[in-house]
Amino acid sequence: MLARVAENIYWLSRYFERAENNVRLINAHSNLLMDLPLVDDHDGWMPLISINGQDDEFSEKYLSANEQNVVHFLLADKSNSSSLINAFFAIKGNLRSCRDVVPKNVFEDINSLCRMVIENIDSSLSSPSQRQAFLRTIESRLQAIASGLNCNMCHDLGYLLMRMGCYLERADMTSRIIDVQSTRLSAVNTAPEIMAIQAQRWVSVLRSLAANQMFRQHVRRPVNGPDTLTFLLLNTRLPRSYSFCLDHLEQCVKALKNPEHVIAAIGTLQDKLKSANFTTLARDPVGLHDFLDELQLGMLNVSAAISTTYFPPLQDSE
């Protein structure tokens, strides 16, 4: 497969995963805030901006961090490079450059979804209920696309690269979602009322990762910090757990040539996870935030290793 096309298909997959996690996060987060009546608008919504480090960018454009503004910034703001609509523009652009390797029926699904999102995103923001339904539709259609690719595409190099993009992005999103709902919400507000609803926050973290039901089935204890962190970061059967993603990413890379640098970068992250003490971290929002930050930096190294190994810049001759 051409290196140029490989890079496009890898990024296509990353954007899919990012979009899916973002829509689920926004729905789960607004759900959580309905159960936190005492948290004010700013404290409730600002963490969704902070997770991408966009505090300054946001406050330049919007007067306050209320639901309407934050949601608009995250979903429909074309000037925000991380907004959902821009993710779909990126999907469209990448799809164009790798159209010939995507199965036709799945191409149609992706193409229709892009059109649907771009055409309806503004009107979907007219009320929270419409927005929730809209985001839920995007989530399920993205999952249908992932399944279509799985069933219709040869599990060849292109598919491996798609899986790699997906696992990498998913692990990264898992760490960010834990960060936004467990550490940032508590870091900005340590009022007793907030601390009293600890469990609720952990439930929301699980929901944001569609892992609530699986937690109940597999952990069989009331939701609590250490168990949630262990489940979401170390479980080897939960598809959105950090370790699951890392292990599968590693398997994919091992099927490629010259995997050494990528595997080394993955290994660093695996060691970090193994040596963490989640009982302590669950009680220490600042420590947990720093830990998750380290994971994100480690993942940047993995991503860089993949790019330099498999998508070398085009040269004039070899």
């Binding site: 051409l2 290196a3 690269l161 070899e318």
Partner: peptide, 16 residues
């Protein structure tokens, strides 16, 4: 995506 190598043949720049 293409280049002509020293052997005079045309090649694609593939992954790896």
């Amino acid at each position: 995506d293409l280049f002509v190598a020293d052997d005079g043949y045309v090649y694609m720049r593939n992954v790896g």
